[in-house]
Amino acid sequence: MELDRLDRDIIAALVDDARATYAEIGHQVGLSASAVKRRVDRLLDSGAITGFSAVVSPQALGWTTEAYVELFCQGKTKPSDIALAVARFPEVVGAATITGEADALLHIRATDVRHVERVIERIAAQSFVVRTKSSIVLSRLVEAPPGVVRNGSHTSG
């Protein structure tokens, strides 16, 4: 779907505050509330907007430890097989295939280092995993919300 300037402005307003009313967004972008609703509905129908959710602090849930784990897999393990296997672990909050020696990179959130260790042990036990390499996060230096680049402007897609 091709997004015009108004679509991008509406998406930017929703990224800033997904709880904003159609009237508030309309005021920001120069449209009526009903015109904003029609556009949001169209953006949802087209898949440009995939949904709305609450962003909850992992610390509020007690998940204060995070790690990145590289997976090294046997032969030609399919990305879909990796995705299916790691999706079973609620601690895996992100996973991607990557370039370099490793086949995939997992982002794990857990209650403590021992919890991370248990998750890595369970993942390493998967039949296609040859080995893992993990790094524990000490502190977050930069973190932008989804859809926003660091200079404060919204991504365009």
Rank of each mutant, 00 (worst) to 15 (best):
F72P: 11
F72Q: 12
C73V: 14
C73G: 04
C73E: 03
Q74Y: 15
Q74F: 15
Q74N: 12
Q74D: 13
G75T: 07
G75H: 05
G75N: 05
G75S: 07
G75Q: 05
K76W: 12
K76T: 14
K76M: 12
K76I: 13
K76N: 14
T77D: 00
T77S: 00
K78D: 02
K78Q: 07
K78V: 10
P79H: 03
P79R: 02
S80Q: 13
D81A: 13
D81S: 13
D81G: 01
I82N: 00
I82D: 00
I82W: 01
I82S: 01
A83T: 08
A83G: 05
L84D: 10
L84V: 07
L84M: 09
L84P: 00
A85K: 06
V86A: 02
A87P: 00
A87T: 15
R88V: 01
R88W: 10
R88K: 14
R88L: 13
R88G: 10
F89P: 00
F89M: 03
F89L: 05
P90L: 07
E91S: 09
E91M: 03
E91L: 01
V92N: 03
V92E: 01
V92L: 02
V92W: 02
V93Y: 00
V93H: 00
V93G: 04
V93K: 08
V93N: 02
G94M: 08
G94S: 14
G94C: 04
G94Y: 02
G94P: 04
A95T: 11
A95P: 06
A96V: 11
A96M: 07
A96N: 11
A96E: 14
A96G: 05
A96L: 05
T97L: 02
T97W: 03
T97V: 11
T97G: 01
T97Q: 05
T97R: 04
T97F: 01
T97C: 01
T97S: 10
T99K: 02
T99S: 12
T99C: 08
G100K: 07
G100F: 07
G100M: 10
E101H: 13
A102D: 08
A102Y: 01
A102P: 11
A102C: 10
D103P: 03
D103M: 06
A104T: 00
A104G: 04
A104D: 00
L105G: 06
L105V: 09
L105F: 04
H107D: 08
H107A: 11
H107S: 11
I108M: 06
I108E: 07
I108S: 09
I108K: 04
R109S: 08
R109T: 03
R109N: 07
A110F: 06
A110M: 05
A110Y: 05
A110G: 13
A110D: 06
T111E: 14
T111M: 14
T111S: 13
T111I: 15
D112M: 05
D112C: 05
D112N: 15
D112R: 00
V113C: 02
V113Y: 08
V113D: 13
V113W: 04
R114S: 11
R114E: 10
R114N: 10
H115Y: 06
H115A: 13
H115Q: 04
H115S: 11
V116Y: 13
V116C: 08
E117N: 09
E117I: 02
E117A: 09
E117K: 09
E117M: 04
E117T: 14
R118M: 08
R118F: 01
R118A: 12
R118T: 06
V119Q: 10
V119F: 12
V119E: 12
I120Q: 15
I120D: 14
E121F: 08
R122A: 10
R122L: 02
